[in-house]
């Protein structure tokens, strides 16, 4: 598959969405609602549960699976209140010393007038900054689309996994094509997808993701069991570290990103 086909696969209807992974991986999930400031954004669901014997906080972007649920979930495009709910739950996880598991799947943060009025940029900025200092481990899995800052707001993590046909990008290939080549024709979008290096395999080679996870949607339960084992290993790896070491590991993970020449 080339980048454009992967992009289409990552967005395909019928592909499992956030809630399916929560149900498949988290035991006894209990959903927690609201940002305590404005409202409850259903584009991000969050709550608590277990992975094996470990209590965890989970956050999952959810696009919806049919028209009514897609409308209710705003097609998985979070608004500021979604990011503020996520941050509230991450701070709660820090208080109770439990790891945070994030499932990332969004075209991007919602670009609406209401979102701008309520500080979309500020909400994402705060989420990223607080995540960078969070004294508990965060593991993010890109399950579909990792759309720009709206995705990074739940992926400023200690480790990032990505499904084999998921994508992660600084800008949607459509957006890139329309800025650079005026029109987002399928040819231009395909070219942009290629130039931007958005595939899971690109993420692995750039170091943006630690692991690529094989997809097997025909045996989804089995696939979730595999992801769960991987998460369990990672949680136990971090359990052996101090809070300072966890923060420092995350800082160094991001500190190395960048390619440039230096005199």
């Amino acid at each position: 598959m080339d980048s454009y086909e992967k992009l289409k696969t990552a967005r395909k209807n019928g592909r499992p969405t956030g809630e399916a992974y929560v149900k498949g991986i988290i035991e006894f999930p209990f959903e927690l609602h609201g940002d305590r400031r404005f409202g409850d954004d259903l584009a991000i669901m969050g709550g608590v549960g277990f992975i094996d014997k470990h209590p965890v906080t989970f956050l999952a972007m959810e696009k919806g699976t049919d028209l009514p649920s897609r409308l209710a979930r705003n097609f998985g495009c979070p608004k500021p209140e979604g990011y503020r709910k996520a941050l509230r739950l991450m701070k709660q996880a820090e208080k109770f010393h439990r790891p945070v598991i994030c499932f990332v799947d969004t075209l991007g943060a919602y670009p609406g007038a209401d979102a701008e009025e309520r500080g979309q940029g500020q909400a994402i900025a705060e989420s990223i900054m607080e995540m960078m200092g969070l004294r508990t481990p965060v593991i993010s899995i890109v399950i579909g689309e990792g759309g720009s800052g709206g995705a990074l707001a739940l992926a400023s993590a200690n480790k990032v996994f990505i499904l084999e046909n998921a994508v992660y990008s600084v800008i949607s290939p459509e957006g890139c094509a329309s800025i650079l080549w005026k029109e987002s024709t399928p040819e231009n979008v395909a070219k942009a997808a290629d130039c931007l290096h958005i595939t899971a395999q690109d993420m692995k080679s750039l170091g943006v993701a630690e692991k690529v996870i094989r997809e097997d949607f025909d045996h989804f339960d089995k696939m979730c069991a595999g992801i769960k084992l991987r998460l369990l290993d990672t949680i136990e790896e971090f359990a052996a570290m101090s809070e300072e070491e966890i923060v420092e590991q995350r800082y160094q993970r991001f500190r190395k990103f960048g390619v440039f020449d230096e005199k």
Partner: peptide, 15 residues
């Protein structure tokens, strides 16, 4: 965008 996803990562690095 000409630096792809690594430009996105700068947001977290600076933060």
């Amino acid at each position: 965008m000409q630096e792809g996803v690594l430009s996105l990562m700068q947001m977290a690095k600076v933060s």
